[in-house]
Design a protein around this nucleic acid. Structure first.
Length: 938
RNA sequence: GCUCAAGUGGCGGAAUUGGUAGACGCGCUGGAUUCAAAAUCCAGUGACUUCGGUCGUGUGGGUUCGAUUCCCACCUUGAGUACCA
């Protein structure tokens, strides 16, 4: 009987689905374990072999945990709002919901054929109204909250209003817009409603504000910082410009410190934590105020080096700084204006590309040094960024290289305030071994103490204050797109109002076209009928007021990360229509125990999701403030692209070994035309595209045409995509699963090579043959030999360690070794072969189920108990001897021979170096290690 | 520039509280089986060698009886980040 994988896999996939084998209940006597994958965006291209890598790993772990007696939650869903479906809709007029539905069908079929143990009864989609109802609901909670610094948590806005009407805002410690002025209770109570709303908006955790945003004209929408890579959009690579717009923002900055501290409590990779730390960008220092001469204005700067304050010889403002026009003297006006205009013209990209050339202009104004009272010239320069700190710096050329370069370039003074340091060539930026001098009361102090003393003195003299700065900016939350969550927002007199929760969801309306309106409104501006009928009714009814005017609705939609910032909680109770998840479910599952996904989400999804989780935690809506205990980033499987060389300007292709000195243009060829020896199927290539039909080929005499290979990201446009459907068809899902694990460490980037799959496929055939012969099942109730037991327990030990360490690649090798050994030992004992199957089941579930059934089991192998390891089968006779050597050193020897202590000692003494040959024994080599050792070699 | 990760056969990769380097697989070579092929099985496969051995984990040093593993410097590649005051 042959190993008929296609039949077996279909059979068991159907069995699991019919029997709901992987359904998880929200209560159990077993301990819980939650294994989560980052859910996919269902793109039109379907899955390629690179996509399921992380899913296979998480599936192995989920199945392993079930064998270990855990109640495992392992769900899957779709992050189904997004740009590609919308771009497609713009081109074809097809509703994104339709294409998304089709794509999901393809995804589901492809996922199912891989044999994943997902609990599909918990499937969710971010674009379904039942789901985004709760995304909208969370938005309302954010709107109705502010961040109280004195309790260090989010609190309701109504509590804030109470404080305002009782005592004003003088005692309120909030993370809020810095432009807020102090007011009393009486003043507050006297403010008109609109003014009160304006003020409250500056406290809310999601707020509407005119901010500088990253506008991508090509995509017609704004982008968050993490959606921009090297000054162009992450999707499509279009240019991005800065633009002032009124947008919804999320006050993530309120959580900067907690997001930073929380990293110490979770088991995520160091690389990932590090990039979140960098993104949050905490720097500790001081805010210093410089008075201006001949002006009432002051310049506030942030510095991390208050110890160097006596080294200040000038100040620099960003060209966009609001004081620039105010302080510039008449003589300097034209020069400054020209510089500001020139800077504004340069795109973000140019400015980034050109960091070396130094430019700037003197404003003519002078500030006053807070301690020496000396005059300090105020310059503007584009090396100072408007967006960081206060957009102004106190320049200390001796201690900062950029200030130094600027000073050299414009021949400004460079006073030296470091003891015994030469600054004639460059700035001295080391702060560890620094002693301050020429600095009045800071003289002789090292960095640490000088900083402290400088801050103290600044505070006493009211010239500054110790301050911590974060690079983390508030996140823009509006997108001028159609295919996203509508905001539950309408406006009265220009002020945003929430639609009552009982009216949620506010569903997406139908529109004629998916483009912005002629007036420049977002696509939802085309949905007039919708805006009027369904929502207006809700708004009016909710407010129980007879409004006469029109209440415009918010026409933007939420960004892609809205839905993905809380979905892990929804899986716990996915069909709940009364709450985003019941507290019973939330308290049972608590958090994700293992989260697997790509590292590209480090500063996007993974940061936003932590932010929302902490917010929900503050409101007592979730039981934990970090949503994922452990996170693993799977690496990417890369494609092995093939290039054919064409002589430039001709239609003649040259085999790579025939190229002489022609100018070659490299063209991607579909990898399916190329065999494992890099030889091109010329006929197939010719008929691929009409332009190649009549091409000529320079190859060797046997018409062997070689292509160039290069490892690249797997992508349709590079014609290097390998489809899992074809692999499953030819080798089976179990082979594919095993092979993807076998390719290399989970976290690593590694190229795909279809040829290698024959190895693991051969292993599965061998495995089959170990259990099933020509006439049926070979396994019998026989006593296992010592060797059999040794192989089994060696394998249990290794595989358990591998799974716990997520080294899935090496356990595949371990299986191969085990099966080879058992075959060679002609093992047919049930006592050995049953546990071996359970070990393999998480990796190759279909074949394991089939063999398990043929061994006479009625229940799925998925519920079988993981075999227990017994070390006594591995160690035959091992003894440890403590031995003194030369009367000093100590050795421990472990031997698998029955040797007397004397014999060992004799061996050690006879071989002072490293090896001892034991006379009169079987040739055993003993390696002796001072302090520890042992190694026996036959 | 900074931060992090990594450099091991023809290829993917094993091996680290320091102890037989190259497990396992691919590929390759030879053999068995076959009319032939596929499939399967067996043997070999780091380099050099006078067949005793010698050299070998990016390069150069160091610690150690012993280093792929630890330390220092450098080179290369990849990833992230970028005038962050």
């Amino acid at each position: 009987m042959m190993y008929n994988f296609n039949e077996i896999e279909a059979k068991w996939q159907n069995y699991w689905s019919v029997n709901k084998t992987f359904h998880a209940e929200n209560s159990s006597s077993k301990p819980k374990y939650y294994v989560l994958d980052m859910f996919p965006y269902p793109s039109g291209a379907g899955l390629h072999v690179g996509h399921p890598l992380g899913y296979i790993a998480s599936d192995i772990y989920a199945r392993y945990k079930r064998h270990k007696g855990f109640n495992v939650l392992h769900p899957q869903g779709y992050d189904s709002f997004g740009l590609p479906a919308e771009q497609y809709a713009i081109q074809t007029g097809q509703h994104p919901a339709v294409t998304t539905e089709e794509n999901i069908k393809t995804y589901r079929r492809q996922l199912d054929q891989m044999g994943f143990s997902f609990d599909w009864s918990k499937e969710l989609r971010t674009s379904s109204p039942e789901y985004y109802k709760w995304t909208q609901w969370i938005f309302i909670q954010l709107f109705n909250s502010w961040y109280n610094k004195s309790t260090d948590k989010a609190t309701s806005i109504s509590a804030l209003v109470q404080i305002f009407s009782a005592e004003g805002n003088i005692h309120v410690q909030a993370v809020c817009d810095e432009s807020i002025l102090v007011f009393t209770a009486n003043e507050w109570n006297a403010f008109p409603t609109k003014q009160q709303q304006e003020i409250l908006l500056k406290y809310r955790l999601t707020y509407l504000a005119e901010t500088e945003v990253n506008w991508c004209p090509e995509l017609g929408t704004v982008l968050a910082n993490d959606e921009i890579i090297n000054g162009v959009s992450e999707r499509g690579g279009y240019p991005v410009v800065r633009k002032k717009m009124t947008q919804w923002s999320m006050r993530i900055s309120a959580y900067a410190e907690r997001l930073l501290q929380g990293l110490n409590t979770i088991d995520w990779t160091d690389a990932l934590k590090e990039s979140q730390r960098n993104w949050i960008g905490k720097s500790v220092g001081a805010s210093v105020v410089f008075n201006l001469r001949d002006s009432d204005a002051v310049i506030e700067v942030f510095t991390t080096r208050p110890d160097t304050i006596f080294g200040v010889s000038f100040m620099t403002l960003a060209p966009e700084h609001e004081l620039v026009s105010q302080i510039t003297t008449t003589e300097q006006k034209s020069a400054v204006k020209a510089y500001v205009v020139a800077t504004a013209k340069r795109s973000e990209r140019e400015r980034m590309a050109d960091v070396k050339s130094i430019s700037g202009v003197f404003t003519g104004a002078y500030a006053e040094h807070p301690f020496t009272k000396e005059s300090v010239p105020v310059w503007i320069g584009d090396y100072v960024l408007a967006g960081y700190g206060t957009g102004a710096v106190m320049a200390v050329p001796c201690g900062d290289q950029r200030d130094y370069d600027f000073a050299k370039h414009f021949e400004l003074e460079i006073p030296n305030i470091f003891q015994g340091v030469d600054i004639s060539e460059q700035a001295y930026t080391d702060k560890v071994n620094t002693i301050i001098s020429n600095s009045d009361f800071l003289n002789g102090l090292p960095y640490e103490e000088a900083s402290k003393k400088a801050i103290e003195t600044l505070e006493i003299q009211s010239h500054g204050i110790g301050k911590t700065n974060y690079r983390l900016r508030d996140a823009v939350f509006s997108r001028q797109r159609y295919w996203g969550e509508p905001f539950p927002v309408f406006y009265i007199n220009g002020m945003p109002q929430m639609i009552a929760a009982k009216h949620l969801p506010i569903t997406l309306p139908k529109v004629e076209k998916y483009l912005p309106t002629e007036e420049g409104d977002p696509p939802l501006g085309r949905a007039e009928a919708w805006a009027w009928d369904s929502v207006q009714n809700k708004v009016v009814e909710n407010n129980r007021i007879n409004y006469e005017s029109i209440f415009p609705l918010e026409l933007n939609t939420m960004p892609g990360w809205a839905g993905s910032s809380w979905y892990f909680n929804r899986y716990m109770d996915v069909n709940n229509s009364d709450e985003f998840a019941s507290s019973k479910a939330l308290n049972y599952w608590k958090e994700v125990d293992l989260y697997i996904g790509g590292s590209e989400h480090a500063t996007g999804h993974l940061l936003y999701a932590r932010f929302w989780q902490k917010f929900l935690f503050d409101l007592d809506l979730v039981p934990v403030d970090e949503f994922a205990k452990k996170l693993i980033n799977q690496g990417m499987i890369l494609g092995n692209s093939a290039f054919v060389g064409r002589i430039e300007g001709t239609n003649t292709f040259v085999s790579i070994d025939k190229i002489t000195d022609e100018t070659i243009q490299w063209i991607h060829a579909d990898v399916s035309f190329v065999n494992s020896s890099d030889e091109l199927d010329i006929a197939a290539f010719k008929s691929w595209r009409s332009e190649f039909n009549n091409a000529t080929f320079i190859a060797d005499d046997n018409l062997i045409f070689k292509v160039k290979r290069e490892v690249e990201k797997m992508s349709k446009s590079k014609y290097n995509v390998v489809n899992p459907d074809a692999i499953c068809e030819k080798y089976g899902a179990d082979s594919l699963r095993l092979y993807e694990m076998f390719l290399g460490p989970l976290e690593q980037y590694k190229p795909w090579n279809t040829a290698g799959i024959s190895g693991v496929h051969g292993f599965l055939k061998k495995l089959w043959k170990l259990y099933i012969g020509d006439i049926g099942v070979l396994v019998v109730d026989s006593e296992p030999s010592k060797d059999h037991l040794k192989t089994l327990h060696k394998t249990i030990k290794k595989v358990t360690e591998d799974i716990e360490n997520f080294s899935f690649n090496t356990s595949v090798s371990t299986f191969m070794i085990a099966v080879n050994e058992l075959s060679a030992q002609k093992c047919n004992s049930k006592i050995i072969l049953e546990p071996i199957l359970i070990l393999i089941a998480p990796y190759a579930p279909h074949i394991a189920e089939e063999l398990w059934e043929r061994l006479g089991h009625k229940e799925s192998i998925a519920t079988a108990e993981f075999p227990k390891f017994n070390a006594s089968h591995l160690i035959e006779i091992t003894k440890s001897y403590p031995i003194s050597f030369n009367g000093k050193m100590r050795f421990t020897m472990e031997l698998s021979l029955e040797l007397s202590k004397e014999a060992v000692e004799e061996a050690v003494m006879a071989n002072e170096k490293t090896q001892a040959q034991l006379a009169g024994r079987a040739p055993k080599k003993v390696i002796v290690v001072p302090g520890k050792i042992v190694n026996i070699v036959s």
